[in-house]
Simulated scan of single mutants.
Amino acid sequence: MEARAGYLRQNLTGALAYSSFVPKSLPPDPPVALDTEGMTLLVAAHRQLALLEGLAARIPNMDLFISMYVRKEALLSSQIEGTQATLDDVLDPLADVNANRDVADVVNYIRATEFALHRRTELPLCNRLIREIHGVLMEGVRGQERYPGEFRRTQNWIGGTGSTLKNARYIPPNVEDMHAALSALESYMHEADTLDPLIRAALIHYQFETIHPFLDGNGRVGRLLITLFLMEENLLSAPALYISYFLKQNRIEYYDRMTEVRRTGNYEQWILFFLRALADSAEDAIRTIDRLSALHEKNEAILKQNVSKKQMGTLSKLYSYLEAHPILEVKKTAESIGISYNAAARAVAVLVEKDILKQQKQVGKTRIYSYTAYLEILRGDM
């Protein structure tokens, strides 16, 4: 099985010599063969994704949940790469003026996801779309000098701080081999294949990470590709899956299993890990949606108690805004939902009185409020 996944190519000579990996095109040869455990995991992953998709279709305010899921996945995916930011940092209503570089990374991932979801209605999954997503991801943040929106033009490598081509843990394909591998991967994403689409999603993610076509941001783009491919295959209609939580919790195994494919050609052990990640992530998303839905219904009932019809309109607007922005300040909220500052302040006071909102902190004269119960559910697995 040594050459099943690829082989090493010698580059340059003498003191500058190094070996880069050349991945074989997908699908694997010999073909993927799952054992009983693999088939059980495949069935479980499909079942959980189908349950999640059914739930997403039934919930009237799913768009509000999705906006939060996009933010959570962006945060978790960025944390895998070492970004030091919290959910509160990302949701801070003053983040646009106070954002540090870590928060900016996450905000750009959110923008890249939203861009990809819109752009995929105009473009299929392709190298052009991948480059455009990367351009949004890297715009104006660290790494922006590293060719945002362009495939790399130099050799890269993976290793600890200060590592070089001589002691790198992994050296992706050289530039010429990279372009050939990307072209083959783009073709594979659109080819008819007898393999189950969840297995194909595992292979595509592995292959993209192995090619490592950018100087920075490969992991985040590669994880976003998982969601986009599942949507392309009509297994998800919305990005309600945050697989990065599982991958972050099992980060060492995540990288080790991809390394094992390159080392031995054993794709199957990677696919089993990936299917577990999908099943667990979908199951977790279902639990979270159930809890958020119960909280929504409970608080909608509380809102209607001892409130005039006129006031109810403003409170409903504020509550809808709150589910997409569970940390808020009055001025920005008033502007966002199109009401006066005083009306927003009165509505916030009612939500505080009803124990839905809590004052979190005060920055100068600005008071920051949080939807604590909502945030606790979202933080439950972080």
Score class of each variant (00 low, 15 high):
residue 250 N to W: 06
residue 171 I to L: 05
residue 6 G to R: 00
residue 379 R to H: 11
residue 204 I to P: 00
residue 337 I to P: 08
residue 121 T to Y: 05
residue 6 G to F: 02
residue 278 L to C: 06
residue 291 R to W: 05
residue 294 A to L: 15
residue 295 L to A: 08
residue 194 T to Q: 12
residue 241 L to T: 01
residue 111 R to Y: 10
residue 151 F to Q: 09
residue 276 R to T: 11
residue 320 S to E: 10
residue 219 G to V: 04
residue 339 I to S: 04
residue 103 V to Y: 00
residue 4 R to Q: 14
residue 76 L to Y: 14
residue 149 G to W: 01
residue 217 G to A: 11
residue 240 A to D: 05
residue 166 K to Y: 13
residue 49 L to A: 04
residue 241 L to C: 01
residue 106 V to F: 01
residue 5 A to Y: 02
residue 171 I to F: 06
residue 152 R to T: 08
residue 147 Y to Q: 08
residue 156 N to E: 04
residue 35 D to V: 15
residue 92 D to P: 02
residue 97 V to R: 13
residue 241 L to H: 00
residue 82 G to Y: 14
residue 200 R to L: 06
residue 107 V to D: 01
residue 213 P to I: 01
residue 287 R to I: 10
residue 246 F to W: 02
residue 127 N to F: 04
residue 171 I to N: 00
residue 233 E to I: 04
residue 55 L to T: 03
residue 192 A to W: 12
residue 122 E to K: 02
residue 270 W to L: 05
residue 108 N to V: 07
residue 100 N to Q: 13
residue 356 I to N: 01
residue 365 K to P: 09
residue 329 E to Q: 12
residue 326 P to M: 15
residue 137 L to Y: 03
residue 25 S to R: 05
residue 100 N to G: 15
residue 182 L to I: 10
residue 46 H to S: 04
residue 167 N to R: 09
residue 176 E to H: 14
residue 360 Q to W: 09
residue 344 A to W: 00
residue 151 F to Y: 14
residue 255 Y to H: 12
residue 232 E to P: 11
residue 251 R to Y: 10
residue 145 E to R: 15
residue 293 S to M: 08
residue 331 K to I: 14
residue 58 R to S: 07
residue 149 G to E: 09
residue 329 E to I: 02
residue 304 K to R: 14
residue 112 A to M: 01
residue 309 K to V: 06
residue 170 Y to C: 13
residue 111 R to S: 06
residue 96 D to T: 15
residue 355 D to F: 13
residue 297 E to F: 15
residue 123 L to N: 08
residue 241 L to G: 00
residue 246 F to L: 05
residue 360 Q to D: 11
